[in-house]
Nucleic acid binder design. Structure first.
Length: 633
DNA sequence: GAATCGTCTGTTTTT
DNA sequence: CAGACGATTC
């Protein structure tokens, strides 16, 4: 306790009733949260009654570990989405869904939506498809059912069909993990009561980034006991595009009557220079609650500004600086990070670091689990669990080629739909009774292919109870002849094989960690997990998007690509509030730095295959010159 | 039904 | 530039 300042101690000692901690960047928020949980445990609250909701899986994992190390106790720490899936796995039958539902990612749900467009005879162009996707997503995040989302117009009827089809597939999408959970709890008071009794102390991190569904979920779960402990910072709200409403944090005291509000405004992370520069920047936001963070860590170095000719030079500059800092100041690579606005910007940095032999790790990025070979295999695994998972069926049925092309599949799917049967069991019946669907005749090749396919799945399903997860995966790879399928493309074969090995390693590692590993649980975890694994043995420079940097800190930060149209991003240009969000994003990036911050931009940059002239970001001009110094190569 | 070639088209950010 | 998609041919 002696390490805490007065406001921090007040927050830590808070026990019952609603509390909001307005925690500025670097104000010791994590420390408060951990100590507060520890305190609850000390006064005898059972760990099982504590639920901590964080924004990322990584943060959840960290919180679990710290509590375990500190108090040897296991609390439930998860993201809103994992929490939703946990609740649904247990209670979704109240809504008439199967318990073994699949979780569809963006890719899967887009495919499903596309098939709906085709069913309805609409042209499935990207534009309209995307529009419908985001309409549906937005509606769910705002807790609107298809009926509520619009009166019989096209979009809401697409939403309606989409939702029906998901259910037919025994699947839910990401947004459903929140939407259906809230729906379930609202429509079944006894279920709600069960969870309210289970988790009597609720902690919500990054409260400024909750959307309406998440906010409602938090409210529901705490409605009986009001023990909600929310932490957030409106200046770091950067997810409005996902439906987040930072107003939630401003409305906290009216939402939760009798709420205590504690402000943490002393920064323990950054030098005064970095902090004042960030303060100056964020003060350009009109729509903002005034606050001023201060630091007692001393002035420190000036912020390094570097103007590169192009993105290649920008990357070499950073690589060179990294080597120099490492040599001269003996600072490890783990202490350094590169932040950018878009994932595509990582490319030149990868090249530069590679050529300078600097090991790096990309946090986030194109997820391992989104790679085709991984998704293919996971789709097979899903089908072992689910009879109805249409998207996984379509993904795997002709892979390797089994003589079932688009037109045959269209017919099969339509017939299954007509008969209202899960896709796999329909196919099985179809083979037994060729007259099942008149007008659907399978050629000998297709028939053989389908029968091969089904018997692979049947065998795997029969073996499942006797095999460990990793052996089941191995068996899947063998039986489906997946590796020989990969040989068709010699270019990518090696990479993909390595990825598959990694998946196997992951499965082995996972089943060793779990007490009772189940396939369903494994699949669930993988579909919710985005971050790829890193080797803790080797120190590496971390590269990530600004969004991914939230909640982290590094002694040395290279914040790159500060150019108009990139930051603020071109899509935010005509919208004042969107520009303010970009500014908050910039603020988040800057305030991650503890000792030294570099801001770089390039004059020319290759985009869409052509060289573009880039103007320095307006945000650079908003940082007073007294805090910065120009750097040369 | 499968393979190949060309055309288009697009890029935020993520659970 | 790269990946996705469609048209064309076998």
């Amino acid at each position: 306790m002696s390490e805490l300042n007065e406001q921090q101690s007040r927050a830590v000692l808070h026990i019952e009733g609603p509390l909001l901690v307005l925690a500025g960047a670097g104000s010791g928020k994590t420390r408060v949260v951990i100590h507060r949980i520890a305190h609850l445990l000390e006064i005898g609250i059972p760990p099982a009654e504590i639920l901590a909701v964080t924004f990322t899986n990584k943060a959840a994992e960290e919180m679990r570990n710290r509590i375990r190390n500190l108090k040897n106790a296991f609390i439930l720490a998860s993201t809103f989405h994992s929490l939703g899936s946990r609740i649904l796995r247990e209670s979704i039958h109240h809504l008439g869904y199967e318990t073994n539902f699949s979780i569809y990612d963006e890719d899967d749900s887009e495919k499903l939506l596309k098939s709906i467009f085709q069913d309805k005879g609409l042209s499935a162009e990207k534009g309209p498809l995307k529009e419908a996707r985001s309409f549906i997503s937005r509606s769910k995040n705002d807790l609107l059912t298809p009926e509520q989302s619009g009166s019989g117009d096209l979009l809401s009827s697409l939403y309606q069909s989409y939702q029906e089809k998901l259910k037919e597939c025994h699947a839910v999408d990401f947004d459903d993990l929140l939407f259906l959970t809230v729906h379930l709890l609202q429509s079944h008071p006894s279920v709600l009561e069960m969870y309210q009794n289970r988790w009597r102390f609720l902690l919500i991190d990054e409260y400024q980034d909750t959307n309406f569904a998440q906010y409602t979920l938090a409210k529901l779960l705490s409605a009986s006991h009001h023990n909600i402990f929310a932490v957030g910072d409106p200046d770091q709200s950067i997810y409005s595009w996902r439906g987040a409403r930072y107003q939630n944090i401003l409305n906290f005291s009216s939402d939760f009557p009798g709420a205590t509000i504690i402000t943490l405004d002393q920064n323990y992370r950054s030098t005064t220079t970095i902090l004042e520069a960030a303060n100056a920047l964020i003060e350009h936001n009109e729509n903002r609650f005034k606050k001023h963070l201060w630091s007692s860590l001393g002035e420190g170095d000036k912020i390094g500004l570097y103007t590169a000719m192009n993105e290649k030079q920008e990357a070499s500059f950073v690589a060179m600086q990294i080597n120099q800092i490492k040599r001269r100041n003996s600072i490890g690579l783990n202490e350094m990070a590169i932040f950018y606005r878009t994932n595509a910007q990582s490319r030149p940095f990868e090249d530069a670091l590679l050529s300078q032999k600097i090991p790096y790790t990309i946090i986030g990025g194109v997820s391992f689990y989104q790679r085709k070979e991984i998704k293919d295999l996971l789709a097979y695994l899903r089908l072992i669990v689910s009879e109805a998972d249409l998207i996984s069926f379509l993904r795997t049925i002709n892979l390797p080629k089994r003589g079932l092309g688009p037109s045959t599949l269209d017919k099969i799917v339509a017939a299954a739909q007509e008969h209202q049967r899960p896709i796999l069991s329909f196919c099985r019946s179809l083979l037994e009774d060729p007259n099942l669907a008149p007008g659907l005749k399978l050629g000998p090749k297709a028939k053989q292919g389908l029968s091969d396919y089904l018997s692979i799945l049947d065998t795997l399903r029969k073996q499942q109870p006797y095999l460990s997860l990793s052996d089941l995966l191995k068996e899947t790879i063998t039986r489906t002849r997946y590796l020989s399928y990969l040989q068709e493309d010699k270019e990518t074969e090696q990479d993909k094989k390595e990825n598959i090995d990694e998946l196997l390693a992951k499965a082995i590692e996972w089943e060793q960690e779990q007490e009772s590993p189940s396939l369903t649980q494994f699949l669930e975890e993988l579909s919710l997990k985005t971050s790829s694994r890193e080797d803790p043995e080797i120190p590496t420079v971390k590269m990530m998007t600004l969004h991914n940097s939230k909640g982290l800190e590094f002694p040395i930060v290279f914040f790159v690509g500060l150019e108009e149209d990139l930051l603020p991003h071109i899509n935010s240009k005509d919208d004042a509030s969107a520009v303010e969000e970009e500014r908050r994003l910039c603020y988040v990036g800057m305030t991650r730095a503890k000792r030294k911050l570099y801001l770089t931009h390039a004059v020319y940059r290759y985009m869409w295959g052509t060289e573009r002239y880039m103007r320095p970001s307006r945000f650079l001009k908003e940082i007073p010159a007294e805090y910065t110094e120009k750097k040369e190569f």
